[in-house]
Design a protein around this nucleic acid. Structure first.
Length: 274
DNA sequence: CCCGGAACCTGAAGGC
DNA sequence: TGCCTTCAGGTTCCGG
């Protein structure tokens, strides 16, 4: 599922295909995906617009338009944006098609229908509540310590709160906690200064490595050209329940944290450290 | 404000 | 073979 490294990859690979292109037609097959404005108004206002930029904030893709408006897309769990020939018949799970002026089209492929879309003049109205970008220089161990302090919620849950840190989801939270040797259910406020430093470094290392591998294709993630990513080959714990820890050969455990599959090594990530 | 659980969705996988 | 249940998880909403 697209988290920061996957959305970053999609953004990078969409740019050469769409920047400078004009949208010549919009077909919507699942109108509930449009949050703002109405589906029919989005269709009308998007048609004819020129795309001037593509950027990422957290897990959101932002298409800057020549009018000054922005179209924003959240792929949620199973969404992909695929570059297709203009005449290609939309596959069963394609929820929207954006035709471009160069004989191609973007197909919004989303089996689970969780993806969302906005067309707004004020980008802040959509991204305004997002927290720090993990690669922002202001994302420091001190910032991480600040958001963990006074929290009894599991550190795994806090890592995934988009209003605090933007872009981390279920799999990269597990990977970062493994790299930092921290048990996922530890209360946020229980982390020591040394653990905060390790976690801070691990978050950046894990995300950086995943971007270098063009994202992780564990379920329905496809890049705009239809290719998968390879970051999941490097996963140490995420989605590896029952397999052996690459560090100590202990079987990886799977538990549910807030109804989410959570994978960790019971030996490398002790409930009570030391 | 904080915490935990349900709902939204559909396809895959497992049980009998 | 086929029906039924469970699971997957990003985000929002709701109750305590």
């Amino acid at each position: 599922m697209p988290e920061l490294p996957e959305v970053e990859t999609i953004k990078n690979e969409l740019i050469p295909h769409v920047v400078g292109r004009r949208i010549t037609g919009v077909n919507l097959y699942w109108e509930n995906m449009v949050l703002v404005p109405s589906a029919s108004e989005l269709r009308a206002r998007l048609t004819g617009q020129k795309i001037v930029s593509v950027s990422r904030r957290g897990k959101l893709l932002i298409f800057g338009l020549a009018s000054g408006e922005s179209s924003i897309i959240h792929l949620r769990m199973t969404g992909s944006l695929l570059i297709m020939p203009a005449l290609a018949e939309p596959e069963k799970h394609v929820r929207a098609v954006f035709k471009l002026d160069n004989g191609t089209a973007i197909h919004f492929y989303d089996p689970r229908k969780f993806g969302k879309m906005w067309l707004v003049r004020d980008v802040e109205s959509v991204i305004g509540k997002l927290g720090m970008e993990p690669f922002d220089p202001s994302f420091t161990p001190e910032y991480l310590a600040g958001i963990m302090s006074n929290r009894t919620a599991p550190v795994k849950v806090i890592l995934g709160e988009q209003s605090l840190i933007a872009g981390i989801g279920n799999m990269y939270a597990d990977e970062a906690l493994f790299a930092a040797k921290i048990y996922p259910l530890r209360p946020g406020k229980s982390l020591s200064g040394a653990e905060i430093k390790r976690l801070h470094r691990s978050i950046r290392n894990v995300l950086d490595a995943a971007i270098a591998n063009k994202g992780a294709s564990v379920q329905d993630y496809f890049r705009p050209g239809g290719e998968t990513g390879t970051a999941h080959y490097d996963f140490k714990v995420a989605h590896r329940g029952g397999k052996l820890c690459p560090v100590c050969r202990t079987p990886i455990k799977r538990i549910a944290v807030r109804q989410r599959g959570t994978y960790f090594c019971p030996k490398c990530q002790r409930e009570m450290p030391r």
